[in-house]
Design a protein around this nucleic acid. Structure first.
Lengths: 225, 225
DNA sequence: CAGCGAAAGTAAACACCGTTAACATATACT
DNA sequence: AGTATATGTTAACGGTGTTTACTTTCGCTG
């Protein structure tokens, strides 16, 4: 039950202008989202502060969103859109992969994009995948939006087509790959010292091992298909 | 700057007694922790409700904790202790591993314990590893407490000693294994349908593939050590 | 056993929060 | 011009974490 329904919007990005304007300043909804997007602690944001930062009363927010929750939901949607764009940029670097190395690199790039996103926008990342995240990605797929989830299976398929992995990838393979990458990002954004391994190396390590894991039949099933 | 400093306590477990007692009911601190431990949404808990549920005034809480945050911190500590106990139970089933299969099984059991914990106590899990978790595990290692983090490297060492994996495990190996398992738990406690794969199968799949990944040199480094 | 200090509770207040209802104003259309 | 609507404001409600000042009980020591 959203109140505005603007058709998705490019999730702008240019935030923090002068808050002063008189009565109708015509652009509040997006300004609120933008301000939230660039807050150091999105989930901890107070609706009143947020409104105040745009030079507006708390109640004004309710002309554009049903609740604080609904606002954060929209913010999360923008986050997923940003993530999708990063995936697209990383993925389209080499489509289709012309050889095995390129197919591998594509998965590595995907992992790197994911990890980099978590590092670049930790608050947004926490909003999207954190504790209460379920409510913010309820409408969407595992990734928040089916569009961005499609990249991973596609990358795995590329590995299969280029002969890097012997078997056509299953759902389990995607789940495992996704688990490893997501887990790495989770740990990195948590307490694991970021300096322990540079981002690119981490992406390479994780994606590389995921590939290695898929190159052989599962444990306890030595008879390959 | 904790106020009580009771020497760790076994993190009891027996919760929810009758709230009625007069003035000094002698056991409040632990009762508060226990009540929080078994709340459906620990992070969303209101200090006032919590106090009320134990038949006590909000201000009484401050005789035992510096703040709500400090209370949740103690709750998280209990969570990490419970997790450690589960690890211990899973791990000690076969120490030392007498053959390769047992060494593998040990890692699988560890993964299973981790996943099972996330499923059994989702609220506690979210508190420990969720959005604001950093503040709750600040004193501890990646796991919240060095004791529980030691199990994973030990299991990997077992794999090496039994010849399942060719190279002595590095920090990277542990990080990768931990990432995959933690990621799987994260996704499962999130939106990935739990019914997609039964717990035991998931643990087997994830741990199995982690092992497979470690059985061969990293990508781009075909020359084994 | 009396008395006293510390421990552990209460009561009342503060500032802040999300949310709502009633009201005010600027804009857009006929 | 005049009105409907979108978009603001003001004031209030109940709930929150936290503090301050006061009160009661426990445990000790003379």
């Amino acid at each position: 039950m959203q109140k505005d329904e603007q058709p998705v919007e490019p999730c702008s990005g240019s935030a923090s202008r002068a808050p002063a304007r008189r009565f109708h300043h015509g652009n509040l909804r997006q300004e609120l989202i933008d301000a939230a997007l660039s807050a150091p602690d999105i989930e901890g944001l107070s609706l009143r502060q947020l409104a105040g930062s745009r030079g507006v009363t708390p109640a004004a927010v309710y002309r554009h969103f049903d609740s604080r929750e609904a606002l954060l939901f929209e913010v999360a949607r923008c986050g997923f859109e940003r993530l999708r764009q990063r995936f697209a940029a990383a993925f389209d670097r080499a489509v289709p992969p012309s050889n095995a190395d390129e197919a591998c690199q594509r998965l590595i790039d995907l992992a790197r994009a994911y990890l980099q996103f978590a590092e670049d926008e930790p608050a947004l990342w926490r909003l999207m995948f954190g504790a209460q995240a379920e409510s913010y990605r309820s409408t969407a797929d595992v990734h928040g939006d089916p569009g961005s989830y499609a990249y991973l299976p596609a990358a795995l398929n590329g590995l299969y087509q280029r002969g890097v992995i012997p078997a056509e990838p299953h759902e389990h393979d995607a789940l495992f790959a996704w688990s490893a990458i997501h887990g790495a990002a989770s740990l990195r954004s948590g307490r694991v010292p970021a300096a322990l391994m540079p981002m690119a190396a981490l992406a390479h390590t994780v994606a590389g091992r995921v590939i290695r894991a898929m190159q052989h039949p599962p444990l306890g099933d030595e008879t390959a298909t």
